[in-house]
Design a protein around this nucleic acid. Structure first.
Lengths: 335, 335
DNA sequence: ATGAAAGCGCTAACAT
DNA sequence: ATGTTAGCGCTTTCAT
C-alpha cells in the first residue's frame, strides 16, 4: 500500500477500496498518527489560518471577540493567529509580517483606529481583510460598519423619557474615528427630540476609567449640573461611577449614567450599568463570515463588501427618573 | 545565484559574499518577499508554535495570561495556538488534536482542573507540557505550583488585625483541586493565629457571581453573622458585594470582603476589592519559561520541573476595622 | 482501484 | 564562497 493510497483514504476519496480504508484507519489509531498540517498547507497552498489583530486583550472589549472568533474558526477547521498590538504601529507591523510568513488566508483587524499603510503588504498579496469602521472600499476588503445612532438614539430617548433635561455626554479621544461617530450620533439624537445640545455638557474623555472620573468631576462642578450622563464607552461610565462613589452621589437616585459597548463588566457594576450594546459576539461572527466569504469567492468584488452592526440599549439599573423634574411636574415619587 | 545562496544570505550564514547579501536584501525589499514559515518548519522540524489552552477567555482570569504569554512568545519568535475549551472534554480533545497536527513544540495547559487522559497523545509524543497545580511528575512536564497559603495567610491576618472575629470563607466547587487547596490554606491560616474555624462560616460557592451572591445570603441569614468574608475567587466576592448592595449592607462599614485572584475587575469595583493576588502575568511568564527551558533541554529531567508562584494580599477598600469589636474594645470610631 | 513520481518552499549536506 | 542535490510530509497528476 502506497502513501498515495493512504492519503486518499484519509481524505475520503471515494475510489479507494473500503477494505483498504479500514486498514488505514486501524493503523492510524494504532500508531497514533496525525497528519502534518504544515506539509499539507505547503502542497495545498492553503494554510487554514486566519489572523486576528486586536488592540489589547486586557481591554475588556476584546476577550469575547477573540473567544467567539476562535470558536467559529475551529468549527470551520481554521486556526487563528492572534496578536495584540497595544496600539503600537511597530507591533502592528511585526504582526503583519508574521501573518504573511504563516500564510494566513485572511486577517480581521479589530483594532479601533488606524487603518494603516502598514497593511500595504497584506493588500498587495490580495489577502482578504476585514476592518471595523475604517477600511477603504477596495477588492478583497470588507467593512463592518457600526450603526452607532440606533443604540444611542434609544439611550437619549430613554433618559429623556425619564424626564432628564440636562443630559451630558463624555466623549472618547477626539483622534478616534469611532469615538467621534458616537458623539455625532449623540448630537443627532438630541436634535431629533427637538432639543439643542448644551455644549457645556459635552466634555472630552479618553475611554479609560480615569478619563471618565475626571470628566465627571468637571461636569459635577458646573453651576447647572447634568442629571444624566451618557458615555462614549463603558470604561468611561465606570469612571463616572467611581467619581460618584467618592463624592457620595447615589446612582441612579441622584444621577443617571449610561455606558456604551456592553462589556461584560457592565453587568457586574453596582448598580448594573445601563448601556448601549454593540454585540461583541456579533462583531466577531460578522468578521469571520466576511473573511470566509472572501476566501471562497473566486472573483473579488471590485468594491469589497460592507456589513452593518446595529447597536441597542440594554436597560439595567444605573438610570432612573429625574427626581427634580419629576417633582416639578407634580409627579409623586417615593424617596 | 542559487536558492541556497539566498537561503544562506537570509539566515545570515557568515560565509556569503557581502556583495551578494546586499543584492539579496535589495531584491527581497523590491519583491516584497517573505519566507514561508510552513516550508521552513517542514524542513527544520521546528514549528515555533506553542499551544495555549485556557478554559474560557470570557472568564476575566484569562485575558491577561493570554496577553502576556503572547507577548513573550513573540519576543522569542514563537507563535501561539490558542484554544479555549469551555471545560468541555470534547473540545479539549479536539484542541489537542489540532495542536499535534500543527506540530506544536509545547503546550501550556492553563485550565484549572482536569489533567486528563486526553493529554496522553501529547505525552506520547514527548511534547513539553506545563500545568498549573495538577500535573504529574514526569519527564518533559513542568508544574506551576501555586503557594495559596502565603497570600491567604496575609488575608486572614489582615482581617484578624482589623479585629474581625467571625471570619467566613466561601469556597469554590469542591470538585476543583485548586479551590480545595484555597480552603485548606484558609483553615491552616486560621489555626495559625490560634483560632478554631467555625464550620458554620465555611460555605460552598462555585466561583461565579451568582454562587457568591447565594452563599452570602446564607451567611447573612445566620444568627451569628460574619463580619468579614473571604472568598475563593474574585467573582465570588463580586457576588457577595452584589448581595450586600441589594440588602443595603455597606462595604466595608458593615462587612469586610476579600477576594482571590486579583482579576482586573477587582480594582473597578466600588469599593475597590481587597484581594489576594495570584499574578496572571507572572503565571504566564513562568509557563512560557518552563516550556522554553524544556524545548532547549536536550536530556529531559526524569522528574520534570516545578516552579512556585507566590500569592500576596493587595489591600484596597473593601476591608475595614470591625465596628462592633472596635467599640467593644473601647476604640472610638467615627460613624 | 492503486502505485510511481513530481513538486509545494525551504534548508543542509555535499561537491566544487 | 557558491551551486547542486536531496528530502522534510504530504497531495496530485499520470500511468497502469
Amino acid at each position: 500500500m502506497s502513501t498515495a493510497t493512504v492519503s486518499r483514504a484519509i481524505n475520503r476519496v471515494p475510489t479507494v477500496n473500503p477494505k483498504l480504508v479500514q486498514r488505514v484507519w486501524r493503523a492510524i489509531k494504532e500508531l497514533g498518527y496525525y497528519p502534518n498540517t504544515q506539509a499539507r498547507a505547503l502542497v495545498s497552498g492553503r494554510s487554514r489560518i486566519f489572523g486576528l489583530i486586536v488592540s489589547e486583550l486586557t481591554n475588556p472589549f476584546f476577550p469575547e471577540i477573540v473567544q467567539v472568533f476562535e470558536t467559529i474558526a475551529v468549527r470551520h477547521h481554521y486556526e487563528i493567529l492572534l496578536t495584540s498590538t497595544m496600539n503600537d504601529p511597530e507591533q502592528m507591523e511585526s504582526s503583519v509580517r508574521r501573518m504573511i510568513e504563516r500564510q494566513v488566508e485572511g486577517v480581521a483587524v479589530m483594532t479601533f483606529g488606524m487603518e494603516d499603510a502598514v497593511l500595504e503588504d497584506l493588500k498587495l498579496r490580495q489577502v482578504p481583510l476585514v476592518f471595523v469602521d475604517v477600511g477603504p472600499r477596495r477588492p478583497r476588503v470588507s467593512n463592518l460598519r457600526i450603526d452607532y445612532l440606533s443604540g444611542i438614539r434609544q439611550a437619549v430617548q430613554h433618559v429623556a423619557a425619564l424626564r432628564h433635561e440636562r443630559i451630558a455626554f463624555i466623549t472618547g479621544p477626539h483622534t478616534l474615528k469611532s469615538a467621534m461617530a458616537r458623539k455625532q450620533a449623540f448630537l443627532k439624537a438630541i436634535h431629533e427630540i427637538g432639543r439643542d445640545p448644551d455644549m457645556e455638557l459635552i466634555v472630552e474623555g479618553n475611554h479609560t476609567m480615569e478619563g471618565g472620573r475626571l470628566a465627571c468631576g468637571h461636569l459635577l462642578a458646573l453651576a447647572k449640573k447634568p442629571t444624566a450622563i451618557l458615555c462614549s464607552n463603558d470604561m468611561t461610565a465606570i469612571g463616572v461611577m467611581r467619581r460618584c462613589y467618592e463624592d457620595g452621589i447615589a446612582i441612579p437616585r441622584d444621577l443617571s449614567v449610561v455606558g456604551f459597548d456592553d462589556i461584560r463588566l457592565a453587568q457586574f457594576m453596582l448598580p448594573p450599568l445601563t448601556t448601549v450594546q454593540m454585540s461583541q459576539a456579533e462583531l466577531a461572527r460578522l468578521a469571520f463570515d466576511a473573511l470566509l466569504a472572501e476566501v471562497e469567492r473566486e472573483e473579488p468584488l471590485p468594491e469589497g463588501s460592507e456589513y452593518v452592526l446595529k447597536t441597542a440599549l440594554i436597560e439595567r439599573e444605573s438610570t432612573a427618573i429625574c427626581r427634580s423634574n419629576a417633582a416639578a411636574s407634580g409627579n409623586a415619587r417615593k424617596e
